[in-house]
């Protein structure tokens, strides 16, 4: 609600009921990621989750998209929905004033979410390390483009053979157009180019990536490169309105939301300070996650 109404153009939000989120279910790798997204995007305190609000939103999202999911995946989302409803029921049940819960019914869920979020952060770090590693090449990695083999030797053929072969060659099409071979542009090259640009500047106009070529191949490669980098959370893509400028932002605040929410072209408030606030907050020192041996 709060998260989205600030983030979506008025035109859209007026059509949405306030509890509806513009998220696609299959964008999420699982129910925990969706739940984290709902919590993060509304700046909710994870230790005091408004269960009925979150449950309502969670149900709304899965109802809107569950039919497109495979049965197994749908079951995973439904299982967490059931958990949320159970917690909500526990919280609603009247209890005598002097009886305390042994544990807040939400505590187990909070534990799982915190743990899951930690691992998401680590996954983000691993993704960065992987991208860096892929920029190093070991031996044997280069293959030159294939050249046709040159065959030397005496011509051993008869005139009859030659005429026969020549006759088998079809008449050339009178209006053949000659297509000059162009150097193939790869997504990798575009990704490198984007990285280089973003190292030098905070943001980059998408159209700059293929501006000088005006070539479909370049546009497609640039788009794929952007999407891949967004998936790796190296950059964030923003477009304020339909057909508006598409901006690419560097990874300065990528740690903030590992959920991949930045891959959408839904608008965020352009002042990024709100995002970085959350990011900069101190980490409780009790939370330690370390490699564990057997």
């Amino acid at each position: 609600m709060e998260g989205l109404s600030t983030a979506v153009p008025n035109r859209l939000s007026s059509q949405q009921s306030e509890d509806t989120f513009l998220v696609e279910l299959d964008r999420f790798s699982g129910p925990l990621e969706l739940l984290l997204h709902l919590i993060r995007s509304q700046d909710i305190d994870i230790f005091d989750i408004p269960i009925s609000q979150i449950t309502r939103q969670f149900q709304a999202v899965i109802e809107s998209g569950i039919e497109d999911l495979e049965l197994d995946r749908a079951g995973e989302f439904l299982e967490l929905a059931a958990t949320l409803i159970r917690i909500k029921a526990q919280l609603l049940l009247p209890r005598p004033d002097d009886v305390q819960w042994d544990e807040d019914p939400r505590a187990e869920l909070v534990r799982r979410l915190l743990e899951y979020e930690l691992f998401q952060e680590v996954a983000g770090v691993l993704g960065g390390a992987e991208a860096e590693r892929r920029r190093h090449f070991g031996k044997g990695y280069l293959a030159l483009r294939q050249q046709p083999e040159e065959v030397r030797g005496k011509l051993t053929t008869t005139l009859a053979e030659l005429i026969e072969v020549a006759g088998a060659i079809p008449e050339p099409d009178p209006v053949t157009t000659h297509v000059a071979p162009t150097r193939v542009v790869t997504v990798e090259e575009k990704m490198s180019a984007i990285r280089t640009h973003l190292n030098q500047t905070d943001r980059l106009l998408f159209s700059r990536l293929f501006g000088s070529w005006r070539d479909r191949e370049h546009v497609v490669a640039a788009l794929l490169a952007c999407l891949e980098l967004a998936r790796q959370q190296v950059l964030r893509i923003e477009q304020v309105k339909r057909f508006g400028f598409i901006w690419l932002f560097g990874d300065n605040d990528r740690k903030k939301s590992g959920s991949g929410s930045k891959t959408t072209n839904k608008v965020r408030p352009s002042d990024a300070s709100k995002l970085t606030d959350v990011h900069d907050t101190e980490t409780p020192s009790e939370l330690s996650l370390a490699p564990v041996d057997s």
Binding site: L36, I39, R40, D45, I46, F47, D48, E103, D104, R106, A107, V110, R111, L113, L114, E115, E117, L118, E121, V122, V125, K255, K256, S257, V278, H279, D280, T281, E282, T283, P284, S285, E286, L287, S288, L289, A290, P291, V292
Partner: peptide
């Protein structure tokens, strides 16, 4: 690999009254 305390954790910023210390202890090793 990073230790958890080196990671930005956007959600865990509030001091938890409701989640007890033992809860957190069982979360991590």
């Amino acid at each position: 690999l990073p230790r958890a305390q080196d990671l930005p954790i956007s959600l865990a910023r509030t001091t938890a009254e409701e989640v007890t210390e033992s809860d957190i202890g069982s979360l991590v090793r």
